[in-house]
Design a protein around this nucleic acid. Structure first.
Lengths: 146, 146
DNA sequence: CTTTGTGCAAACACTTTGCAAGTCC
DNA sequence: GGACTTGCAAAGTGTTTGCACAAAG
């Protein structure tokens, strides 16, 4: 569930990258902020752990972590890019285009759609962190009242 | 098909906005660039029509047009925000997270999912311009070969 | 004639880059 | 020791804002 057991050092080395403290901290930060961490979130957490780590380093570390596959980058639209530990439970997101609220839905909800799209278009929907936009219950009401 | 027949002047006025040349041109630009226009696209087209129109004006005009509902703003992730004329045919998008390619799929493809999500979560998926991320055929191969 | 919209320029937030010093292997 | 990384500071990007002038109703 955490990344403690995964040999992330190994993964980095395998890709020719070095294992450094800033990278560990950035990885920890993404892990700590369970769920989706915006760049802002990550920067905040990293800053708490070690204020000397530079913003640019965080950007570069995230790039590396995404490239080696330890971290997944998704785009929830409203919020900008978000980062999460790879290999977490499969789940998708309903993002309200009005208020930005995020709901999680189980992967099997979209399983049939996924298969139909694969068959018809030879297009493989994202396994985890698929994002679906729309209106949440409250914002539907707000819109109706207007 | 174009916005010629719609009384867009009326729509603007109804919302308390004035009908101005820059706004018309921005609307024309979105309309001209059939499909999804990025902000860059719009700026380019507008600049061609009238180079004196300022960037800031375009941003403001788009905001207004989206607010009154003449233009729809969606977020395809990779490309950033895109704009399209409201009321065009319903269709959704498959966006490749690798190469950014965009495929269109018909609305009824997701109809059942849409209904299930409405029933289960009281969440109304976007009627048009829903965006689904994943890997296109080519990028699946590329990834497999790697 | 009053209110709203525009162009300009400056401010802004966010991200990227170049480089010397520091760190990992 | 040599190559990769970092921090710093500076340069980009793309977007927003304040304000005097122009235009719409």
């Amino acid at each position: 569930m955490t990344h403690e057991n995964t040999d992330y050092s190994e993964v980095l080395r395998k890709h020719g990258y070095r294992v450094t403290i800033p990278r560990m901290i950035v990885l920890d930060a993404v892990c700590a902020h369970k769920g989706h961490a915006t760049i802002g979130d990550v920067q905040g957490i990293v800053h708490d752990m070690d204020p000397t780590i530079d913003r640019s380093t965080i950007y570069r570390a995230l790039d590396v972590l995404v490239e080696v596959g330890l971290v997944v980058e998704s785009d929830l639209g409203h919020t900008g890019k978000v980062y999460s530990i790879a290999g977490e439970a499969n789940h998708h997101h309903l993002v309200c285009i009005q208020c930005g609220k995020v709901l999680s839905i189980s992967a099997d909800m979209v399983a049939t759609l996924k298969q139909r799209i694969r068959e018809t278009y030879d297009f493989e929907l994202q396994a985890d962190h698929l994002t679906l936009n729309g209106l949440c219950a409250e914002c539907q009401e707000k819109k109706a009242t207007t």
